[in-house]
Amino acid sequence: MLLKEVIYLVQKDFILEWRQKYAFNGMLLYVGSTVFICYLSFSLRFSGLQVPVWNALYWIILLFTAVNAISKSFTQENRGRLLYFYSLVSPQGVILAKIAYNAALMLVLGLLCFFFYAVIIGNPVQDIPMFLVSILLGALGFATSLTLVSGIAAKAANSSALMAVLSFPVIAPMLLMLMKLSKNAIDGLDRSTNLDELAILGAINVIVIATSYILFPFLWRT
């Protein structure tokens, strides 16, 4: 029953996105122009980017993209339609569907960002499958921890500034782990060194999804 609801709601989000493409295209342009501005401001044609800087810059671009993309998830639908959903489906279905949809969106944006980044700035990654795994976990992690925060921020008066203030400290531990994981992938270290980080990222994701699942019903009543 819950699964059916979630699948239906995710489908609805995809259809909405497909009909009004400006949101997705906007995010795409955001990623592209941010990468290009980084390229210009580091004037990379003459000197290569060092690996730690490359890594940190990639995740910071992705973090800002995620905050911008996910903060829309509860504000883009109008009040009437939200009330209509609330009478049809359970709150747990809504939050799980939003997390799933945001994870898919962030995965696409993360991969495209990696593509632009590799083409324009250069690609020092030695273990590409491992780097793709870290993008996958990053997309999932951003989606899980930012979706509930965007629900909180959407209720407040000045939601776009609040979104950043509320989400940065919450996402910090995950971001540190992700940077470590992708740094190992760039340096092409043996994969067994990453087991700790993989386990912790998975555990943080599970904990955050469980808390969102429990807490969201209290949020949507208002």
Binding site: A156, V170, T211, L215
Partner: peptide, 12 residues
């Protein structure tokens, strides 16, 4: 709403 954030933040 701040109770929801408080619990969420403590968990992370």
């Amino acid at each position: 709403i701040s109770a929801v954030y408080n619990i969420f933040a403590f968990v992370t």
